[in-house]
Nucleic acid binder design. Structure first.
Lengths: 211, 211
DNA sequence: ACGTGTCAATACGCCGGCGTATGGAACAAG
DNA sequence: CTTGTTCCATACGCCGGCGTATTGACACGT
């Protein structure tokens, strides 16, 4: 196996480049010849490693699925306490921009039916994981499902908002961001499991005479 | 103006077809010749009505923006009571599948910078509207923004989940759906504005001896 | 020195979509 | 009947991406 002896490309290099292309230009942006140019080679290289474009897509999606499940979920799952686990889940909203771009790109239109399988598997595993988190709080299954659905919705919606309205989303160093996270910590945890006793999310505006 | 005398196509027909194409095949699916085939004409027709593909995209996005703001927001805004307004907003999650497909398609990758403007405008108008809804409850601006961000996230996330995991989402006639809506009614309204006094979202599972 | 296997460059044909140019067909007005 | 306008068809050239075939450059073992 004469690998890593020279600057020869591996199939994995192509898969990674494909993922980057998905993040940057969407699923349709995974084109052999442009990718080859970016990698400094020609497509003669590509067709040695892969049979066709679909094979590349499949390889890239395999990478993605592995990272999005075994990786990020494992990072959260190492927190054994169910309450802290949910909290960590919430702060993970600040996950890498690249990951979120890939997800929304995959989840969008076109969906060559190959992509669909991957998105569905990853989504289901994520949701099931969150359901387990809430079930770990001693919650009934139906309740846990509702809470999880809400939390996962907030997660996905946050990714979208960060894409569509980058200005509206507070930066990580903005105190408003920390406040929002604390807000979510309360909203997304059932009353009995909340970090602080009192709910400070609702401050009425000072009374004025106007209407 | 010899319009509607024959079966002649108008520019608006093309724009509508383009929107349908966005919903079905994404932004890249807006191709002149396939659209012409669907409409039963050739692209000779198209290039009489439009200068190029970008002009068509712009026309389609104008239609979309009008519908997504002046239309759907107006439908919710006719409810004057702020509390009921938020509730109606929540039930609007069940909006047309087509609308959600268009949105996610637009918000995905590629984003030829032309699309970006439209998505940003629509998103901002939606978010501002929701912020006003919460402010209408007498909430402080910062608080209202947090609540709105959460609610809009739930809304967007729900659209995504319905796309990615159609099986996991309860059907409209499923009692689980009604229960989830009631769940959200409580979650997404501040304590003082909730429809019912007691919070029934958290039912602990019956105690068992196992672990 | 000689083959063999690995990885890549080059050249080619194909297809589908874009945009243009030109030529109608229908219809109204004079 | 001619003329002009509106709307569409046809034919063409162009480009970019896909996939194949062929050749070539190294690295190795023998």
């Amino acid at each position: 196996m004469p690998s890593e002896t020279k600057n020869a490309l591996s199939a994995n290099d192509w898969a990674e480049a494909a993922l980057a292309a998905i993040a940057a230009r969407g699923i349709e942006g995974v084109a052999i010849e442009p990718l080859a140019r970016e990698l400094g080679v020609t497509k003669g290289s590509f067709y040695w490693h892969f049979a066709n474009r679909d094979a590349l897509l499949k390889a890239a999606l395999d990478c993605w699925e592995a990272r999005e499940t075994d990786d990020v979920l494992a990072r959260v799952a190492e927190e054994t306490d169910p309450k802290l686990r949910i909290q960590r889940l919430i702060t993970e909203v600040n996950t890498s921009k690249r990951a979120s771009r890939i997800y929304t790109a995959l989840s969008s239109a076109s969906k060559p039916a190959l992509v669909r399988e991957y998105v569905e598997r990853v989504s289901r595993r994520r949701l099931d994981f969150i359901i387990d988190c809430y079930a770990g709080l001693g919650m009934h299954v139906d309740s846990a499902r509702r809470w999880a659905l809400q939390t996962y919705s907030v997660f996905l919606g946050s990714l979208q908002i960060r894409r569509d309205l980058p200005d509206e989303w507070p930066a990580s160093d903005d105190p408003a961001f920390a406040e929002y996270v604390r807000f979510l910590m309360i909203s997304l945890l059932p009353p009995e499991a909340r970090p602080v006793a009192q709910d400070t999310r609702y401050q009425r505006v000072a009374r004025t005479g106007t209407s």
